[in-house]
Structure formats: C-alpha cells, structure tokens
Design a binder for these strands. Structure first.
Lengths: 210, 210
DNA sequence: AATGATTGGATAGTGAAAATATCCAAGGAG
DNA sequence: CTCCTTGGATATTTTCACTATCCAATCATT
C-alpha cells in the first residue's frame, strides 16, 4: 500500500503522515524504489492508534512518540502503564519552594499513603492531584480529605474493574490495547458521563420543569 | 492597589495581567490619572480564579473569558453550568456526514435517553462521549453500552453528591464558586484518583512484589 | 523644582506546537 | 515520450499565550 492509500484509509493527509514519520511516531515504509515505499496493515493500525491518542486523548505528538516507542520495545504491561501515565502529564518543572504547592503535594502524598495505594512517588497523577489541591486552597476552598471519600471509592471501583479486563492470556498486542483503552479512553468516557450527570442533576435541582 | 501589587499578590506578571485585561478576562481598574489606576480585592479574586481555570482546568483564554462574562451577567446557576461545560468543550466543527461519527453520536444520544438524563442536545459532553465511542470503534474496540454501567453509576453518584454541595441559600458568589469547583476541579480530582487507582491495581496484579 | 523610576496603555515580537506547502528528482502509466 | 504522482527534504503558516518595547504622564525623592 502506498502513502496516498494510507492517507485515505486513516483519514489523515499525506503531509501529516510524512510529518509523523519524521517525528518518529510511525516507522518508514519499506522503500522499493527512489520514489516508492510500501506500507502495510500495521502502519495503518498504528496510524489509527496515533489519531485516537491525539484526538481523544489530546496528547502532544511528543507524548504519543514516547508511547509507541514503549510499545515497540515490548515493555512489560505495568511499565507501559507507567509510560502512558507519564505521557499524560502533567510535567511540572522543578519549581522553587512554593509553600502552597509543597503543602498540597504533602496532602496528596498523605492521601495516597493512607489509602495504601502502591504508586510510584514520581507518578504525574500525584502532581495533578496536588496542583488541584493547591488551586482550591488559593481559591479559599481547601479540600477536606474526608470529603474525597466518594471520589476515592469510585476511582477504586473503576480501576479494579478495568484491571480485570486485561486477561493475562490474551495476545500481547491485544492486552496492550486493552490497557491503553482502559487508561486513556475510559478516562474520557468517565469525564463525559460525569459532565452529563452533572447537567442532569443540576436540571432536576434548579430547573424543575416537566 | 496598583497593578504591580496585583501582580505580586496573584503570582502573575504585570504583562500577563495587562494581557488578560485586553482579552476581556479582567475589568480595567478605576483610572485615577493618566498613568494611575486603582484595583481592588475583587480584581485579585478574579485573577486567582482565572489562574486556577487556566492552570488546573487547562482552559484556553477565550473559554475563561466566556465563563467570567457569564459570572458578571449574573446568569442563573443552571445556565452558568451550561456555559462552563460549553467552555470545557469539545467544539466539533460541523463536519460532513462521517458514518462513524454519526453512529457514535447516535449511540451516545441513545445512552443519555435511556438513562433518562435531562441534558441539552447541544451539550458538548455528548460530543466528547461520541468522539470517544468513534475512536474506540475505529480501533476495533467498539463499546458495549452495557459495559458502561459502572461508569454511569459512578458518574451519577458523584454528580448527585456535588449537586448537594450547592445550597440554595448561600450567597450567590459562593454558590457560583461551589459550582465551578464541582465542575472543573472535582473533575480533575476524579481523574487524578482514577489514574492513581489504576496504577495501584496494575501493581497488585502485574508486579506482586512485597 | 529637578530628576529618575514607575505606570497605563498601545503595539509589536517571541516561542512552541502541529501542521501544511513547496520543491525536486525519480518512477510509473498510458 | 510525455505527463502525473511519489518520497523525501526543506520552508512557511497558523494559532495560542504570552513578553518586550515604547511613550508620554506622573509619582517619589531629593
């Protein structure tokens, strides 16, 4: 298959595919002549994954690059999850000692410890949590850890559910995809449903029409 | 208070504040002379909100502008929620008929209808859900609506919980903030906890150390 | 009152990210 | 043989969110 066909089937333009190749997201096709290269189904599959990660996951090209690189290195599943989560960010630059941020980070870490969750101390999600705590504190709405119980419960349930979807005996390619789906795409689904449920709850409470 | 003091207290630079004023995120101070303007605590508060929405909510400046405009117009709470959710996006351009997308959108709408949720037909969250469905379908992992039950349950519980936080008799400013916190910041917290729980579940399952 | 720093407001410039466009020589198709 | 397409390299564009500069007016300080 040539690049124009790849473009047609993936829904991307030829230029964009070339750009992805240059950026290391997609391997080159096998060159058959100075102006001919052959692509196969794996290229197409990869492109579809790239597109999904870019458009749904809203990941920068550099992050997608790191993820597909980990895929190609056949990293263990758990490491791959780490790579994906690292790619999802955030990536706080090592900032000077901001007391707000430090306190928030301590609170986030304390929560994780108290829950007994086994999470890398470098997990970006810790920073995401801490940044949110810090922002809320600055807004005069400090978070009461006890008030997070419903969120913790929901997160735990869903994560448990998702982990159960990855069966150890399915082929690796499939397991990897299952994991990515669980991490990136179910997160979006949860967000969307959360927003929809909020609108519904708000409608029932504040606009008692019908 | 002058702009340099505002900058110091908000943690933003003078230039950035000027930029926000130009962009309509922040009202001008009251001009007291050709080179003097006076800002007050409300400016500071507003700036902190802007910063939180930009940094934690990752909202583009234009979206923040729409939100604060709705705040200033004293829109009813439910309408404000709509504005915020609209600002959160996504904003799909009216695309040609893509069968994938259409099917996904139909599936998303069907789910909302089946749940009996009262949600505007223009709610961007519908598109977010539909786009995710479409992406999963293209990856060969179509979503089984029945499999979403745990997500629906979690979303409903949390939204109900959050709606309960907004008491009708608190001053409007506070209620508005409560609503924003519920919409933007609790969403981030949920995402962060979800990721942390995933890592924990993965660690227990795939790296049975300790 | 002189003088140097600061301010408000306007305008122009920067840097990163992600494409998108152009160019060129070489192949292939009719 | 001629024209169209392609692969690959290089250059340009667009958007976003700031930053930097400029200028005259004004404040603070001598």
């Amino acid at each position: 298959m040539k690049i124009s066909e790849l473009a047609e089937r993936s829904g991307l333009t030829v230029q964009t595919i070339k750009f992805y190749i240059r950026s290391g997201l997609l391997p080159r096709g096998t060159v058959t002549a100075a102006t001919r290269a052959e692509y196969d189904g794996r290229h197409l599959e990869r492109l579809r994954l790239i597109r999904a990660l870019r458009e749904v996951g809203d990941l920068p090209v550099a992050a997608v690059q790191k993820i597909v690189q980990a895929l190609d290195e056949e990293a263990p599943l758990h490491d791959l999850l780490g790579t994906v989560q690292y790619a999802l960010g955030p990536h706080p630059e090592p900032t000077e000692e901001d007391p707000d941020r430090q306190a928030a980070r301590a609170a986030a870490d304390a929560l994780v410890t108290e829950l007994g969750w086994r999470v890398s101390s470098r997990a970006p999600a810790r920073d995401l949590l801490a940044e949110t705590f810090a922002a809320l504190a600055r807004l005069g709405r400090p978070v009461d850890p006890a008030a997070l119980a419903p969120y913790v419960e929901a997160a735990r349930n869903l994560a448990e559910h998702e982990a159960g979807q990855v069966s150890a005996d399915e082929p690796r390619d499939q397991a990897v995809l299952t994991m990515l789906v669980g991490t990136v795409f179910h997160e979006r689904i949860l967000t969307a449903l959360h927003r929809l449920a909020q609108e519904d709850a708000s409608a029932r409470r504040f606009a008692p029409r019908s």
